[in-house]
């Protein structure tokens, strides 16, 4: 295969994988703390629209990402307040957050439809970033490298740090964690806010790097793919990284198959693959159940200290 085509396909795969990796790494932490936030898609859209609005008005991509992060964190705080403080049902609250995010972002983004902004591109010198071959390593937006660093950091955090251990304890057995004196609600708030921050940056990646423009429902259901990815990875950061690039490759293939009129596999079959693979993994985990790789035991269970 031609080098240039191969390199551009590889770069497309990285582009498709990065936002789902970011959103999923955030959700992984949320779920590890025993909370299921189905509002990823909504938080991503809120991040995407606020980031785009700031970028077009100020021309400052880093500021845009910070604002997007804060906006998505505000949305995740709303989720946290309802589910953690008021012990509302997590599934219903998360779904409401997604519906809310879709609506709010469309409304806020109305006046930005059709505008474009400068791509938030590579920070490496153009000799590297635009080099015909080396661009496959250096030619990405800083968000791409950030997503990889975050994956390593989260993996380290969960396995090697005391705080990571506490987070896992809260997700596996809230009552025991509470009885040895950890604040279950506090830990879960922190996790939910982290999930919001990551979803916000993930959303920004669509509006500032991939497209770079705003249109209604820009993230096109990728938040659900991110959710599937967390489950697919069996709640492990290493597998999450592999899964993100696998899903990214399948999504890229799906687009190429559609464009080329590829007739061996229906593009719809490829589009359904991440979801089918996730169900298969869920079933496989249970079949060889050792207990260690399954879902956090307290997932979706509310916790009330004085109950």
């Amino acid at each position: 295969m031609n080098d240039t085509i191969l390199i551009s396909i590889l770069m497309t795969i990285v582009g498709a994988s990065t936002p789902i990796l970011l959103a999923a790494i955030g959700e992984l932490i949320v779920e590890k703390s025993g909370v299921l936030n189905l509002g990823i898609e909504g938080m991503m859209l809120i991040g995407a629209v606020t980031g785009f609005a700031v970028a077009t008005t100020t021309g400052q991509p880093v500021l845009a990402i910070l604002v997007a992060m804060l906006a998505a964190m505000a949305a995740s705080f709303l989720f946290g307040y309802l589910t953690l403080t008021l012990t509302a049902n997590q599934v219903a609250t998360g779904l409401a957050l997604t519906i809310f995010g879709i609506g709010l972002s469309s409304l806020m983004g109305e006046s930005y439809v059709g505008k474009t902004t400068e791509v938030f591109g590579s920070w490496f010198p153009s000799g590297l970033a635009e080099h015909p071959q080396l661009r496959v390593i250096f030619g990405y937006s800083p968000i791409v490298y950030f997503s990889l660093i975050m994956t390593v950091a989260v993996s380290y955090f969960l396995r090697k740090t005391r705080a990571g251990l506490i987070l896992r304890a809260v997700g596996e057995s809230d009552i025991s964690a509470h009885s040895i004196g950890y604040s279950v609600i506090g830990v879960r708030y922190a996790a939910v806010l982290f999930g919001g921050a990551m979803a916000g940056i993930a959303g920004c990646y669509y509006s500032l790097v991939l497209t770079p423009l705003w249109s209604e429902e820009l993230t096109a259901g990728r938040g659900w793919i991110a959710l599937a990815l967390v489950v697919f990875s069996a709640w492990r950061p290493g597998r999450l990284l592999l899964g993100a690039y696998l899903f990214g490759a399948v999504m890229t293939l799906e687009l190429h198959a559609k464009a080329a009129g590829f007739s061996y596999v229906a593009p719809e079959m490829l589009a359904a693959m991440p979801y089918l693979a996730t169900i298969a993994v869920l079933a496989l985990i249970s079949l060889k159940k050792s207990g260690a790789s399954a879902a956090p035991a307290c997932l979706t269970k509310p916790f009330k200290p004085n109950a």
Binding site: A92, A96, L97, I99, I102, E216
Partner: peptide, 18 residues
């Protein structure tokens, strides 16, 4: 925008849960 109704629908659920 069409999605405006969604904001109201989601808010109803938020307020109910709250």
């Amino acid at each position: 925008p069409n999605a405006a109704a969604g904001i109201f629908q989601a808010m109803m659920l938020f307020f109910l849960l709250a």
